[in-house]
Design a protein around this nucleic acid. Structure first.
Lengths: 122, 122, 122, 122
DNA sequence: GTGGTCTAGACCACA
DNA sequence: GTGGTCTAGACCACC
């Protein structure tokens, strides 16, 4: 769990990404509570507001849900939601972006595929 | 040459990107002057400072160079620099990021390669 | 901390110089935040942009680093970097330039050394 | 005779420096005409105005003199003037600046003198 | 004509 | 609170 403070990407995005990955990987099981905002902010040296921003983002995305007075929980079906969103984004954004860049660089289809294949085998 | 004022990426980044692409594509030949800051700012309805921000960025990157009192020129070797940087980034960052995401989604090598291949053929 | 508004060297260069010297002297310790852009601009009667120009310069030089939403900090190793750069410049540029000028003026080695020695003792 | 177009120092300063050095070295003898503005600007790819700026500067300094309709000449006593100015500047500006920098770097008198001595012997 | 610098004042995202 | 970006408008040195 590493936060990059000088990075261009906002810290609350980084926190949200870490939580998302933990849910997708099953480290934060569905239906269970996530660590409290207070705890996370203290452990990581973050402003509580920043951590709250991250959870708010994930609640909006339908990954987490707040139960008043108790805590924040991983929503039922969160993993499925995450994987679905991820796949959609992968097909509609990530792959096209890669192909676009490959074309700008003048790379052939074969060279590009070889690079991806090679990386996959590492 | 279109600037998106609503987009969250800073205008001067967009301008820099446009110039970079024009240099990489050879539309702005090496050794030649680029349009003056004032001309661009007038044409695009931008503040000269904003355009200057973009050129400063590209000068720092070694793509452009100033000649006192005359204007801003495309540096010799700029295309090579750009393509080199781009290729390096493609191999070291873009492809690994794609593969990483594919793995998180549980996509097989074959499925991923098919998605890329398909996009390439569009 | 004095800014000379009449001097021909840009104000933001003067500000950068002041910060550099403060870091080199240890007045701004490594890892600590420097005074905020707004504070400095208010105290010195400068435009925030002008102060920002100086900090941008020093960030590019690797002396300072930003932490999102918190402030600008003296980078670890900044003093060493500064003194290293300074010494390198002193040996490779300043001393040769002095000797070159002495030779153009037809000054002997002894006379030159005496001038330096004398100045040192003031 | 090399002009650095991207250098921070103005081109007309560079031109003036070249002429000054040529006079001091005797390559442009006192009483003789210097190459015409037109010729220099054509040969070096400079704006005539730029070359004029340099000569005007040197006329102000008492190094050159204009003879209407004939050309620009090296003034009698120019070498002496140059060497005098140079010596004055050397003592009052160059040496103190070097010593100041040495002190900022924490260099002792001995180390500094050794550096100068060493450079002198090259 | 070119870019360089500075000011004043505004709005925004982030912590 | 922090810095980031943008605009409008001014003056300057340089070529």
């Amino acid at each position: 769990m590493t936060i990059n403070f000088d990075h261009k990407t906002p810290i609350y995005h980084q926190v949200a990404r870490i939580i998302r990955d933990a849910v997708a990987a099953g480290d934060l099981p569905e239906g269970e509570a996530i660590p409290s905002v207070r705890q996370v902010s203290a452990e990581q040296g973050l402003n509580p507001q920043t951590v709250l921003n991250a959870t708010r983002m994930l609640i909006d995305e339908g990954i987490l849900e707040k139960r008043r007075g108790i805590g924040i929980f991983v929503k039922k079906g969160a993993r499925k939601t995450l994987l679905g969103q991820g796949l959609k984004r992968f097909e509609a954004t990530d792959v096209p972006a890669l192909v676009h860049r490959a074309r700008l660089l003048g790379l052939s289809r074969k060279v590009t595929l070889d690079l991806v294949k090679e990386k996959f085998e590492e």
